[in-house]
């Protein structure tokens, strides 16, 4: 029995080592297939847990909540973070630079930024989610409610009563 479980562990170990070279197919809601390395796909906690649970790696993963354009961008992030090493100072600096450029580009297209945020939230890609939410938070910082509405193109939907309630809460807090 003991030897049996030992062998199983060894097999799992070997599989783990091999997993770096395995390829995984992700399919967008438009049916477009994206083939990525397992290391890249493992950036997503959602996919990682499915792979680890012995899920249907060969069949690929359909992602009904993510469109092709968003998925392509998400994969760009996962490839950079999953496939590259980040041990040395230089490697970390390169990754930080990638993140900076990546988010700057997204920030220019707010609707796309929200799509990527939602995809990161849905796929549980912690780093990407932190990056996009931080970007949105940075946009809010130091602004008045009116300026926030302008920055995000939000329509004013609060009634006078709502505002009264919010103010009430603020004074309590």
């Amino acid at each position: 029995m003991a030897t049996g479980s030992g062998a199983a562990a060894a097999a799992a170990d070997a599989e783990e080592k091999e997993s770096g070279s395995r390829m995984i197919t992700l399919t967008s809601n438009e049916g477009k297939a994206f083939v990525v390395t397992e290391a890249s796909a493992r950036q997503s906690a959602t996919i990682r847990s499915m792979v680890d649970d012995g899920g249907c790696v060969d069949k690929g993963f359909p992602l009904p909540n993510v469109d092709s354009k968003t998925l392509a961008r998400v994969i760009q992030y996962c490839d950079e973070h999953g496939n590259k090493e980040a041990h040395t100072v230089d490697e970390r600096a390169a990754l930080a630079k990638f993140d900076k450029d990546f988010i700057a580009e997204l920030d220019a297209d707010k609707a796309f930024l929200y799509d990527v945020t939602m995809a990161a939230n849905y796929l549980h890609i912690q780093g990407l989610f932190a990056l996009t939410t931080q970007c949105i938070a940075d946009t809010i910082k130091g602004k008045t409610p009116e300026e926030i509405r302008t920055a995000f193109g939000i329509e004013y939907d609060l009634t006078a009563q709502d505002e009264e309630e919010i103010k009430e809460e603020d004074t309590h807090a």
């Binding site: 938070a137 602004k143 409610p145 926030i148 939000i154 329509e155 939907d157 807090a173």
Partner: peptide, 10 residues
């Protein structure tokens, strides 16, 4: 900032 955001929309 969170309070300002709260006043932006429902």
């Amino acid at each position: 900032d969170a309070a300002a955001a709260a006043c932006a929309c429902r």
